[in-house]
């Protein structure tokens, strides 16, 4: 089995209007090459991005969402943390919609989508603005909010090492949101620094099983 494709072929799988889940925490574990390729195709737009934060920098090949945002390819940003002036200006001008989700709730909503759950009750956000409009339930005397699964059309994720079947290994803390994002999307595109042959990764060291992955793109290592 061989899921390896060139980066252009992979990006063509993204359709305008898609919800795109993007792995990474800050720049660590972010699929920088895939994002960079996506911004070269401004005809793919009206996207909703789902990510831990909205990483932006000025460095080529490592600029996160900068190009996508400035190209006007993004209609809605779903994040837990957000803090960039250029992005804030777009939100203030009403050009981009911003949805904030507590970080643990974001991870768990993605997991719920990937795990086929109808939702879950969490104590996070009880008594805050996060509770507004949500069903609540008292379980064993404690109040919880019902949070629903968060599904994406496409996930862009990044691993340190992958084989041609998409079995992946992450470096240190670069696993972060990558696994949850990958399980929550219909189409999963995995960028890897190092491509190995099937069977070369020890089975019990696989962190993201290849069954979740549709396309593998071998990219240059990005230095943050």
């Amino acid at each position: 089995m061989n899921k390896v494709v060139d980066i252009r072929t992979a990006i063509d799988k993204i359709k305008s209007g898609d919800k795109v889940a993007v792995g990474g925490f800050g720049n660590v574990g972010g699929p920088m090459n895939l994002l960079y390729e996506l911004e070269k195709h401004p005809e793919i737009n009206h996207l909703t991005t789902i990510s831990e934060d909205f990483q932006m920098s000025e460095t080529p090949y490592n600029q996160g969402f900068t190009g996508l945002l400035l190209n006007g390819q993004i209609d809605e940003i779903v994040v837990s943390f957000f803090g960039h002036k250029k992005a804030q200006a777009k939100v203030d001008a009403g050009e981009v919609k911003l949805t904030l989700i507590p970080q643990g709730t974001l991870a768990e909503r993605l997991r719920a989508a990937g795990a086929g759950l109808g939702g879950f009750y969490t104590p996070t956000g009880v008594g805050t603005v996060v509770e507004e409009g949500k069903e609540t339930k008292v379980i064993n005397g404690k109040k919880y909010l019902l949070e629903l699964p968060l599904k994406a059309n496409v996930a862009l994720v990044k691993a340190y090492k992958a084989d041609r079947m998409g079995n992946a290994v992450f470096a240190y803390t670069a696993q972060n949101f990558n696994t949850a994002m990958a399980t929550a999307a219909d189409i999963v595109i995995l960028e890897c620094e190092k491509l190995v042959e099937n069977g070369e990764i020890v089975p019990d060291q696989v962190q993201l099983p290849g069954v979740f992955v549709d396309y593998v793109v071998h990219c240059e290592e990005v230095h943050y």
Binding site: D53, F81, L100, G104, T105, G125, V130
Partner: peptide, 11 residues
Amino acid sequence: NIPGMGGAMDL
């Protein structure tokens, strides 16, 4: 400006 709650509410 609202930077987002990050992980504070969960923690």
